[in-house]
């Protein structure tokens, strides 16, 4: 990364159900990481995980934020939403498990691969969720 950038912080809004704008926050995150000269491999991992998390907000929640924090050692993505929450996180992490409606599955989402993808792209992932309140996912990506 560029040594002149000590740390940065950005926050982007995500609206539930807005498929036309879905992915815009992740696209902004990706462009920022490209601008600061982050390594291509880490940009790919962040982009994929951030996009999956953002899509989950669009698919399941009412409203949320994508927050990017980056410094020389690591990139942190926090995706925080107001929504139904995840009832059973362990079950939700099972590849192939999804609660997405049929209309969303027809679009090729909701295959139950999002959370496993996020886990495999990140170095650390924490999920906090409260039913009928919302979900917060924090992912850390370390520079190799």
């Amino acid at each position: 990364m560029n040594d002149t950038v000590a740390s940065l912080h950005f926050k982007f809004e995500v609206n539930g159900g807005d498929f036309a704008k879905a992915g815009d926050a992740s696209s902004r995150v990706k462009k920022i990481l490209q601008q600061i000269g982050a390594d291509q491999a880490i940009i790919r991992r962040v982009a994929i995980a951030c996009y999956e998390a953002e899509m989950n907000v669009v698919i399941h929640a009412r409203h949320g934020f994508v927050v990017l924090d980056a410094d020389l050692e690591k990139i942190i993505i926090v995706v925080d939403d107001e929504g139904p929450g995840i009832e059973d996180i362990e079950l939700a992490m099972t590849p192939g498990y999804s609660t997405a409606p049929d209309s969303v599955r027809e679009m090729g989402f909701g295959a139950g691969m999002g959370l496993p993808n996020m886990k495999s792209c990140s170095n650390e992932m924490e999920i906090h969720s409260r039913r009928d309140v919302g979900t917060t996912i924090r992912m850390v990506f370390e520079n190799a």
């Binding site: 498929f19 992740s26 999956e52 679009m107 090729g108 295959a111 691969m113 993808n117």
Partner: peptide, 26 residues
């Protein structure tokens, strides 16, 4: 399946699909 593409398609790949909605561009 969009998550399948995200997980497996390489940078610089050409992607063939039957999906037609805006999120394929994302």
């Amino acid at each position: 399946l969009l998550s399948d593409v995200l997980a497996k398609a390489k940078n610089g790949a050409i992607w063939a699909t039957n999906q037609k909605h805006i999120n394929i561009i994302g």
